[in-house]
């Protein structure tokens, strides 16, 4: 009988431990740096945002999606250019970031594609962009809007 209780307690402890160890990917585990985006012309065209996402925890984190009040359909897309020089773009799906590693969303590669803008992206403004992780964790970053011809976060 004792043994069972002990086991039960252990199980409960383990369950609790199991819940708390892989802490929700949150601001303490994921660091977003150098976020920037380009101003849009009107609202008909999709926008794009760029940043570096670093996993500072010791567990892999999986980025599964985005939300922002700025766009109805924000999605991580990837631009690929083949040997013939033809560029194409497609949804990148889930992105796993290994512990201690970072991924770069940058022109010509991964980018946050902002489809169905709700308002124009105006140079000098910022907008909140929330990264969603598979464990339910979220990180929100304020993305500065630079000029249409901006080439990087410093422009």
């Amino acid at each position: 009988m004792k043994k069972y209780i002990l086991t039960g307690t252990l199980a409960a402890l383990l369950t609790l431990g199991g819940l708390s160890v892989p802490a929700l990917a949150g601001p303490e585990d994921v660091v977003v740096e150098n976020a920037w985006s380009r101003a849009s012309i009107g609202m008909n065209r999709p926008g794009a945002a760029y940043m570096t996402i670093r996993n500072t925890s010791d567990e892999p984190v999986t980025l599964i999606g985005l939300t922002t009040p700025l766009a109805m359909m924000p999605e991580i897309h990837e631009t690929k250019t083949n040997a013939e020089g033809v560029s194409s773009m497609s949804p990148a799906g889930e992105i796993v970031i290994a512990p201690g590693e970072s991924i770069a969303l940058e022109p010509g590669g991964l980018h946050a594609m902002l489809m169905r803008l709700q308002e124009p992206m105006t140079e000098g403004d910022t907008f909140p962009l929330t990264l969603l992780f598979d464990d339910g964790g979220e990180v929100t970053v304020e993305v500065p809007i630079l000029g249409i011809a901006a080439r990087g976060p410093e422009d």
Binding site: I41, R45, H77, G108, M113, R151
Partner: peptide
């Protein structure tokens, strides 16, 4: 002009 990534990048590179 509806190209969000490659085209503005190329145009800025060229600029």
């Amino acid at each position: 002009t509806y190209c969000p990534d490659v085209c503005p990048t190329t145009l800025s590179d060229i600029s």
